[in-house]
Simulated assay, not measured.
Amino acid sequence: MIALISPSKAQRLLAENIREHRLQRNLTQEELSSRSGVPLSTLRKFEQQGVISLESFLKLLMVLGMLDNVVKATKMETIPFSSIDEVIALNNAPKRKRGRRT
């Protein structure tokens, strides 16, 4: 799949979205920092530059009630089957634990 935005653009958009959610819930940066356990300086840097660790980002999402949605967004989609043979083949196939070497 081809990405339509760069990772740096995605970081900035995520920071903007978190800031909008924070403001919509009428929380100051200090309040969100306190509730999430993310240092205020980290939150400020995130909102300004989009830079944050995954753990801190997940803490912010949890406080803002968005964590479940993000986890669901990364879930593997189920494959629609066109025959019973495909279902049987999938159930008999070993589950991959590693990627293939190229």
Results as ranks from 00 to 15, higher is better:
E30S: 06
M1H: 07
L14A: 14
V71N: 01
S8N: 15
S34E: 15
L67H: 04
E77Y: 12
L64C: 08
A89S: 13
A89K: 12
D85F: 02
N92K: 07
R19Q: 14
L43K: 05
K95C: 03
L67C: 04
N17G: 09
V51C: 07
S34G: 13
E31F: 05
M76Y: 04
S41L: 13
N92A: 05
R98F: 11
K97W: 00
N92C: 13
A3M: 12
K95G: 00
Q49A: 05
P80F: 07
G65Y: 01
Q49I: 05
I5C: 00
V87L: 13
Q29F: 11
V63Q: 01
D85L: 05
M1W: 00
T74R: 15
E55F: 12
Q11D: 11
E30A: 11
S56V: 08
Q48H: 05
R44H: 09
M1Y: 11
N26W: 04
R101S: 10
T102L: 15
A3P: 00
I2Q: 04
E86T: 10
K72S: 14
V63P: 02
S36V: 07
K59I: 03
S6A: 14
K97C: 03
K59F: 03
R96S: 04
M76G: 01
E47I: 09
N92P: 02
N91D: 08
L54Y: 13
L32H: 00
L64Y: 06
A15E: 03
E20Q: 08
K59Q: 14
R22Y: 07
E20S: 10
F57D: 01
F57V: 05
L27W: 05
K9V: 02
P80D: 07
P94A: 09
L13Q: 14
S83F: 05
L60F: 06
M66T: 06
R25S: 06
D85H: 08
K9R: 11
K95T: 02
V51E: 10
K45M: 12
T42E: 09
A73Y: 05
P7V: 10
N91K: 13
F57I: 03
I84D: 13
T78G: 09
A73W: 07
S33K: 03
Q48V: 00
L14R: 11
L14I: 10
L23Q: 10
L61W: 06
V63D: 03
K97Q: 08
K75T: 14
Q49C: 06
V51M: 11
R22M: 07
L60R: 06
T42P: 01
R12F: 01
K9G: 04
D68W: 10
R98W: 10
L27I: 01
Q11S: 14
E30L: 15
L67W: 03
R96G: 01
L4R: 07
V70C: 05
S34T: 05
P80E: 13
L40M: 00
P94R: 03
V71K: 10
V51S: 14
F81P: 04
L4S: 06
R44N: 14
P80V: 08
L54K: 12
N69H: 10
S33P: 01
K95E: 00
R96L: 10
S6N: 11
S34W: 08
E16Y: 03
M66L: 15
I18S: 02
G99E: 10
L64M: 12
E47T: 06
I18V: 15
A93M: 00
L61Q: 11
T42H: 06
